[in-house]
């Protein structure tokens, strides 16, 4: 199913990958420059929201491959998991641990990213789907 103008549909198709990339960039640089999990999650959610406006929720679900609700769950798990290493290291719960390449604040931020992405998309996609059913 396709709605909207040609310009919008082409723009949506081009913008989604760009915005996903941009969101990952925002996520990774968030610790040092403006950005971070919340913002990056919103950017990518916006991208998919645009996509589903143009191509409909079913197409967006196909593009996403995972159910956005699973994103929420996975994000929450990451958030909790990032708290555990400190415990194992014998420090106070949730103390940040730094290893080469990876660190717990980053894991946590990825968790935030996934929850924001999942929550917004769950709401938007479900709403659209219900409307399609109703009308």
């Amino acid at each position: 199913m396709k709605t909207g103008t040609l310009i919008l549909s082409v723009a949506a198709r081009m913008l989604v990958p760009l915005q996903v990339l941009f969101s990952i960039f925002l996520l990774l640089r968030g610790h040092n420059e403006p950005g971070g999990g919340f913002i990056a999650g919103l950017v990518v959610a916006g991208a998919f929201a645009l996509h589903q406006f143009v191509y409909g929720p079913a197409a967006t679900r196909r593009l996403l491959r995972v159910d956005p609700r699973d994103c929420i769950g996975f994000g929450l798990v990451l958030g909790v998991v990032s708290a555990l290493p400190a415990w194992l290291a014998g420090e106070a719960f949730m103390t940040a641990q730094w290893w080469p390449v990876l660190n717990t604040p980053l894991i946590f931020d990825v968790g935030v990213y996934l929850v924001v992405l999942g929550s917004v998309l769950t709401a938007v996609i479900t709403l659209t789907e219900v409307d399609k059913d109703d009308y």
Binding site: F38, L42, V116, S119, A123
Partner: peptide
């Protein structure tokens, strides 16, 4: 405020629905 903005959106979508 950053988290508050996002949560406000979440709560808004909940209450709107």
């Amino acid at each position: 405020v950053l988290t508050a903005i996002v949560i406000a959106f979440g709560v808004l979508s909940f209450s709107v629905v």
